[in-house]
């Protein structure tokens, strides 16, 4: 809980928001623009993203940085905290967002060297989008597994706007219903992924009496996931109130350490995913969770986690989107684990 309070204390008053952003001219040598957000500065060169703030600086390999930035953008700052690594990241306050360095790092905190600023989300998001557009070269897709895309390295050459401007898929009731998110096919640009070539593509039998076309409905979720062109990007497929089934396909490494502000559940649908779980505030290791097809596990609300999948795997991420939860957990009105037994 301490970490939620400290995140809140980063800028206790919402009136005290940072609103400054600036896009600087392209560098004469490497061709990349630099960016300012509040007191933070961002530069990239051939291999690295370099971040500075009053009293400190940090370097992240640019492939790590772009993959993390891509998720932070696509997820709208997501639930809770998106740690790009052990130092830098963002915490979502749903309308406002804290950008931090060292806020969830024991050494920075103990030394009083952490720094954070809180922004209106609609101020920071456009800057992040401009940054990923400028820093992504032709042939590189930060959503893709590394074996399926080119490298992000070198001086600026071209762009890949089509990849970085993909919209996150959010069904309102269920994929495949009339007027809702369509199923994926070869024809609409979603071929089966090479690692899911053996996934059956059969459709369910649907016998509908006249007049019930909007209610008698089913689709092949595994086929849908076998055709995902992105990794580690949960998208809503079915909705019961605030209960969102957000399945996704996973290969290589979840490029962020996700710090939960509520419980989040995982069901591995195929293959194997290993999670590294650390304390949300300190970053100390707490557990490794090894999940195989059919395994179900809760991620407590006071942890951060990243994940690893060698063979591309299907994962059901299950979220409770209720806006009341973070505050309830922060106030101690809800436990950090959903089930006590």
């Amino acid at each position: 809980m301490a970490m939620l309070e400290s995140a809140g204390n980063a800028s206790p008053s919402s009136e005290n928001l940072a609103r400054h952003t600036k896009v600087l001219p392209a560098d004469n040598v490497n061709g990349y623009r630099s960016f300012e957000a509040g007191s933070f500065q961002f530069k990239r060169d051939e291999y690295f993203a370099r971040i500075t703030w009053p009293g400190g600086s940090h370097v992240i390999p640019v492939d790590y940085f772009l993959r993390a930035l891509m998720r932070d953008i696509a997820w709208g700052f997501f639930y809770g905290t998106v740690n790009f690594d052990g130092v830098f990241g963002t915490t979502n306050h749903y309308g406002e967002v804290t950008m931090f360095a060292g806020l969830y790092n024991d050494a920075f905190r103990a030394a009083g060297r952490d720094f954070s600023e809180r922004f209106p989300s609609d101020v920071l998001m456009p800057l992040f989008k401009t940054m990923i557009g400028d820093w992504t070269n032709e042939g590189y897709d930060p959503f893709a597994a590394p074996m399926e895309t080119g490298g992000p390295w070198g001086r600026k050459h071209g762009a890949n706007d089509e990849a970085v401007e993909r919209a996150r898929v959010t069904a309102t009731r269920m994929v495949g219903l009339p007027g809702d998110t369509p199923v994926r096919t070869d024809a609409n640009g979603f071929p089966v992924n090479r690692m899911f070539a053996d996934v059956p593509q059969d459709a369910p039998v649907i016998e509908v009496e006249p007049g019930f076309e909007n209610e008698v409905s089913a689709f092949n979720l595994f086929a849908y996931l076998s055709r995902s062109d992105v990794t580690w990007n949960p998208s809503v497929c079915s909705v019961v109130g605030d209960s969102l089934f957000c399945p996704t396909s996973e290969e290589f490494i979840l490029p962020v350490d996700h710090g939960n502000d509520r419980c989040e559940w995982f069901v591995v649908l195929t293959d194997e995913i290993v999670w590294d779980v650390k304390d949300k505030a300190s970053g100390k290791n707490r557990a490794r969770v090894i999940m195989k097809a059919g395994d179900v596990s809760c991620m407590p609300a006071d942890i951060r986690h990243t994940g690893y999948a060698d063979k591309r795997a299907m994962l059901l991420v299950w979220e409770n989107a209720s806006s009341k939860i973070p505050e309830m957990i922060q106030k101690g009105e809800a436990p950090v684990v959903s089930v006590q037994f």
Binding site: R173, V199, P204, E207, F219, N220, C237
Partner: peptide, 12 residues
Amino acid sequence: GRLVLRRGHMGL
């Protein structure tokens, strides 16, 4: 109506 679901199929 009626649905017949096999592995991986989701129904409303």
